[in-house]
Amino acid sequence: MRIKVKGRDTYVATGGKPFDAKLPTLVFIHGSGLDHRTWALQTRWFAFRGWSVIAPDLPGHSLSKGKPLTSIEAMADWIWQLLDELKVKQASLIGHSQGALVALEAASRQPARARSLSAIATGAAIPVNPQLLETAQNNRPAAVEAMLTWGFGNAYQFGKSHVPGQAPIAVGSRIMASNPLETDLQACQNYTNGEAAAALVTCPSQLILATQDKMTPLRSGLALAEKITASEITKIDAGHMLPIEAPDQCLAELRQFITRLP
């Protein structure tokens, strides 16, 4: 569906079901340079089983208009603005990579509105290699290639795909090529509030981490878990792109967590 957030045309995927503010709401937040399609194999399950799902394209990404937001804090505020537009008081926040930083920051800014937090393949910070930042600013295709080389685990580098016939690395490459990767990476690089934000999280939380993660190493995710009260940790043997590389395990972990929420 398309809605206006602060007057800007915004695309929000709803998992194949119309959005209904009366149902418990799940917000899926994508990572750097990506879009709502990250969540294709998670959102539909929830949307068809009693949840309202929203997976927006952040401003300036894929189907959403507007200038890209330049900080994780601004993205976190934007998520609540989006929920305001939809008249949603409380929501479960689910984020991947940069999206997990956004979810973490959003949960810390409005703790009463965060029903739960699911942080996938992330840490309290995502410092970006300066060379990658420079490459993203000067040669986006080269940066995309580097991101995808590091982003996908071994099996996907060998052409594995959970969707028969699809080439996920190439799909990612096409999506990232037209999105503001350099702005997103800079926002990640600049974000230093993760540990402080983690201390403010009061909702139930889970971390789903990847053992082959080269973008946000497992140890940084485990370190974040220590800062969040009562967080659950799951490790999956795959690369950084967990929602795409290990969609079934990722969904299973989200299901077992979200269906247990009070």
Partner: peptide
């Protein structure tokens, strides 16, 4: 809601390997 095989008219694991290789060799997304 999840990827996988239902019926070989649409997808088949052996055919899928050929598809993955052709997509990769031609630089396509699928």
């Amino acid at each position: 809601e999840r990827g996988g095989h239902i019926y070989s008219r649409m997808t088949n694991p052996t055919v899928q390997v050929l598809e993955q290789r052709m997509a990769a060799l031609e630089g396509g997304v699928g």
